[in-house]
Write a protein that binds this DNA or RNA. Sequence first.
DNA 1: CATGAATGAGTATTCATTCAT
DNA 2: GATGAATGAATACTCATTCAT
Lengths: 190, 190, 190, 190
Amino acid sequence: MSGAQERPLRADAARNRARLLDVATQVFATRGVGVPTEEIARAAGVGVGTLFRHFPTKEALLEAVMVRRLETIAARAAQLPAESAPAETFFDCFRLVVEQSAGKSEFAQALAAAGVDAHAALQESSAAIRARLAELLAGAQRAGAVRPELGLPELIALLVGTTTTMEHLGNDVSARERIFAVVFDGLRPR
Amino acid sequence: MSGAQERPLRADAARNRARLLDVATQVFATRGVGVPTEEIARAAGVGVGTLFRHFPTKEALLEAVMVRRLETIAARAAQLPAESAPAETFFDCFRLVVEQSAGKSEFAQALAAAGVDAHAALQESSAAIRARLAELLAGAQRAGAVRPELGLPELIALLVGTTTTMEHLGNDVSARERIFAVVFDGLRPR
Amino acid sequence: MSGAQERPLRADAARNRARLLDVATQVFATRGVGVPTEEIARAAGVGVGTLFRHFPTKEALLEAVMVRRLETIAARAAQLPAESAPAETFFDCFRLVVEQSAGKSEFAQALAAAGVDAHAALQESSAAIRARLAELLAGAQRAGAVRPELGLPELIALLVGTTTTMEHLGNDVSARERIFAVVFDGLRPR
Amino acid sequence: MSGAQERPLRADAARNRARLLDVATQVFATRGVGVPTEEIARAAGVGVGTLFRHFPTKEALLEAVMVRRLETIAARAAQLPAESAPAETFFDCFRLVVEQSAGKSEFAQALAAAGVDAHAALQESSAAIRARLAELLAGAQRAGAVRPELGLPELIALLVGTTTTMEHLGNDVSARERIFAVVFDGLRPR
DNA sequence: CATGAATGAGTATTCATTCAT
DNA sequence: GATGAATGAATACTCATTCAT
């Protein structure tokens, strides 16, 4: 799909790249996007040079982290069965996105602030999620399980907002469930 | 309430302080908390030195902006009548907080990132809002207008999350109303 | 002539700016344009921040150094009497430019490498010199003291080349005089 | 002459070495000595490792490029007939050196900046040219075609300077000829 | 031998904060 | 009190050189 032909990375290089992505995901989520690149490199056990070889820019690293996250979400969302129980599947997908998005809001801001073209790589990977969400939303609305006046923009905004809500509740699982109850009931007609 | 005895500011100094707060509120909301202090000073028509005389730290300026915002919210929340229509007042207050909090999320993060003690001044100024919210929540629950199992932490998290949701919808007023409908209906029992 | 209205610099700031220019001129000429900016700042007895406050870019510093040099040359060239002895004045000016240009070639390259628009400030300040040279060249040619087929481009190239020649001779004054003799005699018709 | 005994290179290694020299000559002349070594390696179709196997240092590569250039000049200068027409041969040699030296000035600076000992390998390879120039200069002076007071240092400085002059004239062939006329006439007595 | 991934010292530039004017 | 010049620690990114594959 992408223009450049990527040669298969050498084993050790691939390992480093993966480690960097893992570490960056963790560190960005924990300490914010302000962490020095050098810290990420150190945490991954490589030199800064290696980090910049794999990700030519800090922003590129950020983007790669987000793309991977979005791809994971898209993959899981694709596995959900759509035909049999549209309503249930819609709410499962909502849960899935929120639960996989912890800490995402900060990334989104950082990327949004970085300029328009930064979105390019993400747009591509988020298109699948959007499409899936639109499809599930329509299905759930046809099944009468979701208010018919809601559009995709509202759904997405609500997903982001609910993620933020969850971040503020930390690990209190029962509180999280109560929030899901509020939002899910609120989504239903009347 | 605060420890230090504040002497009455000279007229021009007070004017400068006020101008700085106004400008900072505006600039932080527009361009993010990353703006150089010097820019804020210039926009306020004063030198950096003056800014730092009034707010010994950039973080202190951020805090002052937020405190003022919280105080505004607290004042308006205090004006809402509680006895007559508890449920209606609760939802009005929810609206009020969300609408006054536009752009707040970024500030909160910045302050959170700057260390725990930063909350001190805010905790103090947000106590009133919390108390008011707790009171209104209890009233609405007693009136059977809000799910009884919800606690103050969930309410606050939901306020923050809904603020984020609204930020993502920009100026689409009807979409915002649809979100309020979802959240308010969700808050009601069953 | 320049667009921005420059406020009169504070005494100490002006002193620092001047010191930085002097030191940079010296250091660039001695050790090349590759010297770290920090070294220049240290040599001028100021912090890096101060350097970058006065010259927002290393390139800008380079440019400022050259501009000052060109202005000095232009000023001295303007003082030469043109009417009475055109030929003599022409050769005096040639000498002047070569002697004031020591080390200039490297700067020119650095600036040329930095992009086209960099020339802007220089073009402006070198226009006077070019004009003066053109005028003196024409006068000397009318007086029959310089080959009539030579144009301004050749003259300028010859000035740059002669500067390089001189740089290679170091401080051997008599050798320098022999070079001037060669070039000046070569410039004369037949 | 050089200390290390060089074993005959394998055919492909020799090919790589030659390619690297060719490419480096081209790239250095075109884009300056600041180009990353990796770029040169890529342009030569080899990995950086190979480049550094052949030339242990970037400086060594620079040196090799210049040495080869000097050897070419020396070889051509050796072919010029000295006895029959000393004056003509001298001027032909001057031309030869200048025309073969295009872009050399930058190299020389880079090497000079790299330390005194860098000259070692060059001194060795330039000795022949110097000797040849000295011989031709003496011949031309004996023939009364060149000012007797000029020494070898002035001649060499003049060669370098004239090269610079030519670089500034680009491809304007007739302008170049006018410069040669100036310099050659200047070199002649009176 | 060739490769290109890894390394990390080095560099320009920014920005919160201080302090002489 | 107000000003803005000075400060220097911090940070993203580059590139010559090494070495595992």
